[in-house]
Simulated scan of single mutants.
Amino acid sequence: MRVLIAGAGIGGLYLAHGLHRAGVDVEVFERAASPDAFAAGYRIHIDRDGDRALRSCLPPRQVADYEAACGRPPRTFAFVDERLRELLAVEIAPAGADSGHRSINRYRLREILLSGLDDRVRFGRELAGFEQGDDVTARFADGSATAGTILVGAEGTHSPTRAQLLPHAGRVDTGVDGITGRVVPHGPPAELLPSAFADGPGLVLAPGGRNLFVATHEDYLVWGLSARRESLPAGGIGDLVPDRLHSLARELTARWHPRLRHLVDAASEVSGFTIKTSVPVPPWPAGRVTVLGDAIHSMPPSRGIGANTALRDAELLCRNLTSGMAPVAAIAAYEQEMRAYGFAAVKASVQAQRQGLVANPLAFSASKAALRVLNAVPVLRDRVFR
Rank of each mutant, 00 (worst) to 15 (best):
D98H: 05
D65W: 11
S99H: 03
A95K: 07
A64L: 09
V90A: 11
R72F: 01
F79H: 15
A68S: 14
F77M: 12
A95F: 04
C70K: 07
D49A: 15
Q62K: 05
R83W: 02
L84V: 09
L58S: 07
A89L: 14
R61P: 06
L88S: 12
D51S: 15
F77W: 12
A68N: 08
A89C: 14
A78E: 11
R52W: 03
R72P: 02
Y66W: 13
C57M: 14
E67V: 05
P94F: 08
A53F: 10
D98E: 12
R85V: 09
S99D: 02
E91P: 05
S56W: 02
T76W: 05
P94Y: 06
V80H: 08
Y66T: 13
E82D: 15
R75V: 00
C70H: 06
V90F: 12
E91D: 12
G96P: 02
D65I: 00
R72E: 14
E82G: 10
P94T: 01
L54D: 05
P94Q: 08
A78F: 01
C57E: 04
A93D: 03
A78P: 08
A69F: 03
E82F: 06
D49E: 14
I92E: 07
A95H: 10
A78L: 01
L87D: 07
A89D: 11
S56G: 13
A53I: 15
R83C: 04
A89H: 12
P60N: 07
D81R: 09
D98N: 11
V90D: 07
D65Y: 04
R85K: 12
Q62R: 11
Q62L: 03
Y66V: 10
E86K: 13
P74L: 01
C57S: 14
E82N: 10
P59Q: 07
G71H: 04
G50W: 00
V90S: 07
C70L: 06
T76A: 12
D51V: 03
F77E: 08
L84I: 07
F77L: 08
A69R: 09
L84R: 11
A93W: 02
A78G: 08
P60Y: 01
R52L: 13
G71Y: 01
R75H: 13
D51R: 15
G50A: 11
D81H: 08
V63L: 01
R83M: 09
A53P: 00
A97L: 00
L54F: 02
P74H: 07
E82Y: 09
G71M: 02
L58D: 05
P59I: 00
R52V: 14
R61H: 10
E82K: 04
A78M: 07
V63Q: 15
R75A: 06
V63Y: 01
E86I: 05
R72Y: 00
S56M: 10
S99T: 04
A78Q: 10
G71P: 04
T76P: 01
R72V: 13
A68F: 04
I92D: 01
F79P: 10
E82T: 05
F77G: 04
L84Q: 11
F79L: 13
R85D: 14
A97Y: 00
D98C: 05
R52P: 00
L58V: 09
Q62F: 02
E82V: 04
A89R: 15
D81S: 08
A95Q: 12
P60Q: 02
E91N: 05
D65E: 15
V80L: 05
R52H: 09
L84N: 13
V90K: 12
